[in-house]
Amino acid sequence: MGFREEYEQIVEGLKQAIGAENVVDYKIPRERRIFVTVKKEAVVQAVKYLAEEQDFWHCSTITGLEAKDCFEVIYHLARDHAISLSLRVCLDKEKPEVPTITDIIPGATLYEREVHDLVGIKFIGHPNLKRLILPDNWPDHIHPLRKEWTIERIREELRKAEVIP
């Protein structure tokens, strides 16, 4: 299989650029799909390398999710709309912060705002980290896509904050 070697070379290049200790693991499930996990410290460098050296200029979206012991932020990057590389980074539950990548890929502005809004992850250095999706009178401490916030709990809290009757 030719594609596997090619994709491994991409990951090798990434390892050289950001240091092998910063690449936690990677997998290649099938053609045109790569999943890479990197450490939080190296995420900006990794995106920079991938976007500028490896031509992954397109950011399809950013997923934020709550796993068992951390918050995950997954950057779905794409090369020529063909190879989709998902760059995963795990964040501390106590302090979910990650540097922004908008200065490298300006098209990611709204995606970062969306994740900030719904999962409550702070993107340090984002030029305009305002509300994008939730209403303006939404209480700041409710992050609807976190697991602790069940639908019932959200409703209760909103009633307490007098957002809904």
Partner: peptide
């Protein structure tokens, strides 16, 4: 993007529609 956990429900399901990508 889907993250499954072995049950009959997804753990996380993420959709990004084309319009959001075109707003900037």
């Amino acid at each position: 993007y889907v993250r499954s956990n072995g049950t009959d429900r997804p753990d996380r399901y993420k959709i990004r529609s084309p319009t959001l990508g075109n707003i900037p």
